[in-house]
Amino acid sequence: TEKQERAIEYIRRLGYSEEEARRILKKANGNPDLAKEIARRIG
Results as ranks from 00 to 15, higher is better:
L14I: 06
E20M: 11
A21H: 00
P32T: 09
E18V: 08
S17G: 05
R40E: 14
I11H: 00
I24C: 05
Q4T: 12
G30I: 02
R23K: 11
A39E: 02
D33L: 08
L25P: 00
N29R: 13
K36V: 15
K26V: 10
R23H: 12
T1M: 11
T1Y: 12
R23A: 14
S17M: 03
L34T: 06
I11F: 06
Y10G: 03
E19P: 07
D33H: 09
G15F: 01
L25I: 05
K27P: 01
K3R: 13
R22N: 06
P32A: 13
E18C: 10
A39M: 03
E5P: 03
K27S: 13
G43Q: 15
P32I: 11
K27G: 07
Y16F: 15
G43D: 12
R23L: 14
N29Y: 08
Q4D: 08
R40L: 14
R22G: 04
I24E: 00
Q4W: 12
E5M: 13
Y10I: 06
R40D: 11
R23M: 14
I24F: 10
E5R: 15
E19R: 10
R23Q: 14
Y10E: 09
K3S: 14
L34N: 04
R12H: 04
S17K: 04
A39S: 04
R40A: 09
R40F: 07
A28P: 01
I24K: 00
E9T: 06
K36Q: 08
A28H: 02
R6G: 10
R41Y: 07
N31H: 07
I24G: 00
E9F: 06
A28R: 01
L25D: 00
R41P: 04
G30R: 04
E18Y: 11
L14H: 03
L34E: 06
A21Y: 01
A21E: 00
E37F: 07
R22E: 05
E19M: 11
K3V: 13
K36T: 07
Y10H: 06
N31C: 07
R13K: 14
G30E: 04
A28W: 03
R12I: 15
S17H: 03
Y10S: 06
S17F: 02
A35P: 01
K36S: 05
K3C: 10
I42W: 12
P32G: 06
N31P: 01
R6L: 14
T1P: 10
N29K: 13
E5D: 11
S17D: 05
E2P: 11
G15D: 01
A21G: 03
N31F: 05
Q4F: 09
L14N: 01
G43W: 15
Y16G: 00
I42V: 11
S17Q: 03
R41T: 12
K3Q: 15
E19V: 11
A7G: 03
R13A: 15
L34C: 08
I8K: 04
T1G: 10
I24T: 02
A7D: 04
L25C: 04
L25A: 01
S17A: 04
L34A: 07
I8T: 03
D33K: 11
E19I: 10
R6C: 13
Y16Q: 01
D33G: 08
Y10D: 07
I24R: 00
A39C: 05
K26W: 11
I8P: 01
A28V: 05
L25M: 13
Q4E: 12
E19W: 13
E19S: 12
I8M: 07
D33F: 08
Y16P: 00
E9R: 11
D33I: 09
I11N: 00
R12N: 03
E2D: 14
A39I: 05
A39V: 05
R12W: 03
K36I: 15
E9I: 08
K27Q: 14
L34P: 01
R12L: 12
N31S: 07
I11R: 00
K36M: 15
L25V: 04
E20Q: 12
I42K: 10
A28K: 01
G30Q: 05
E2A: 13
R40V: 10
E9S: 07
K26Y: 11
I8L: 13
R12T: 10
I38E: 04
N29V: 05
L34D: 05
E18T: 08
I42G: 15
Y16E: 00
N31V: 06
R13M: 14
K36P: 02
E37A: 14
L14A: 03
I24M: 07
G43A: 15
E20C: 14
L25W: 06
I11Q: 00
E18S: 07
E37Y: 09
E9A: 10
I24V: 04
